[in-house]
Simulated scan of single mutants.
Amino acid sequence: MNWFSIFAIYALFWVLSAFVILPIGVRTHEELGMEKTVGQADSAPGNFRPLRVIAYTTLLSAILFGLFYANYTYGWIDRTSFDFLVKGPE
């Protein structure tokens, strides 16, 4: 696998991991007992920490990519693992 492929696949894992991590631990102003700004959406986060989200996203995506690359290298799961999904001739 060349370096560009590794980077592209890792970037995909990072973006998907970000969508998983984003809602974890976020509370609204109402849940935190904070005063809302005029015109603010009721669902706006009151305790958003972007650096923490980036760190957790990077950690999760590194773990997932490591599993993906290990599977690519050692071939634990390949396309023949899913032959049971295709009906063969009877």
Rank of each mutant, 00 (worst) to 15 (best):
16 L>H: 09
17 S>G: 08
48 F>S: 01
69 Y>S: 14
76 W>N: 03
71 N>L: 05
26 V>W: 13
6 I>S: 04
62 A>S: 15
64 L>H: 05
42 D>H: 11
77 I>K: 07
81 S>E: 07
17 S>E: 05
8 A>L: 15
60 L>C: 12
21 I>Y: 05
88 G>M: 02
10 Y>H: 10
35 E>R: 09
86 V>N: 00
4 F>E: 04
50 P>V: 02
70 A>C: 09
1 M>A: 11
67 L>N: 02
31 E>A: 11
62 A>L: 15
14 W>T: 15
49 R>E: 07
79 R>D: 13
78 D>G: 13
81 S>M: 01
30 E>V: 03
71 N>V: 08
8 A>C: 04
40 Q>W: 04
84 F>H: 08
33 G>D: 11
21 I>T: 07
64 L>Y: 11
55 A>Y: 04
73 T>W: 12
30 E>R: 14
6 I>P: 00
52 R>A: 10
88 G>Y: 04
67 L>M: 15
86 V>C: 01
44 A>W: 02
53 V>I: 14
51 L>N: 10
41 A>R: 09
35 E>H: 03
48 F>Q: 01
9 I>E: 10
89 P>F: 00
47 N>W: 04
58 T>P: 01
60 L>P: 01
25 G>K: 03
82 F>Y: 13
22 L>A: 06
79 R>T: 14
80 T>P: 00
41 A>P: 00
37 T>L: 13
